[in-house]
Amino acid sequence: MSATDNARILDRGYRQFDGERLGTRSAIRSTAWQTTRSIFGLGRKARHKFFPMAILGITYLIVIIQLAAVFLFGNETAGFLTTNSWEQVAPGIVMILFAALVAPDAIVRDQKNGMFSLYMSTPLTKPTYLAAKSFSVAGSILLITFGPALLYLLGKTIKGLGPNGVAQWFETFGRLTAACVLVSLFLCAFSLAFSCFTNRRAIASIVVLLAYIGTSVPSAILYEETNIGEKILLVNPIETAYEFGARLCNSPSIADNYGEITTTFITLGFIGWLLISCLILLVTYQKREAI
């Protein structure tokens, strides 16, 4: 074997690219991955990792403690093992906080640091750019909606409290997956829609939370103080989405008053809010100057 057999070219220098260019799908995938890295602070300073990692850590810590309690103290504590995280108040609020945190990070920074203009000079268009961002944000939210719910389901199954039989297990799993994906998509669309009006991240997060409070508080007051009926609760987008998810999983309603609304109206309310959120986002971006 001569010395040149092991030789490698280490520095090829700048050269022309003769290979096949990957299309828009590759551009969406790359943008979504880069956004996810940015959301969790990967490749960024430690302070950017703190909040997303802390929320993820707390969410999974609660689930692990609950599972440990069930496995250590028996079925008396099995009530911890709900079907969806959002059936419990605290994880439901954590999801909103997480969505209010990650959505501005995904799109507001691009406005501020000029990346939006650069993205628009690539094969990406405004709709495909928003699709990439949505994949990333919804995927990140899925970590705190689907992850804990899956652990609960596995815990129930191992303890013999879960669905009976393979067919029923897969049906439950399918419903759970669909519910988590749709609730995550909704939280993604809602938080993106209300964070696209400013190029300040902190303000965008506050706007998202205010949008939630601004819809949930009036609907609750109107329900309590007037005779409009329980359908006024559909004005609250987040709880409507959580209730929709619960119905999809055949779980108990998130609150007694929601139980009085038919599934058809809950579904219409969910679709309506999803469409409104998408519309706000698309119209805002269509008007936005790319370069």
């Binding site: 690219f17 290979g19 990957l22 299309g23 590759s26 551009a27 993205y119 690539t122 094969p123």
Partner: peptide, 8 residues
Amino acid sequence: LAEVRGIP
């Protein structure tokens, strides 16, 4: 940006 422009 090279990836977004279609380079593997």
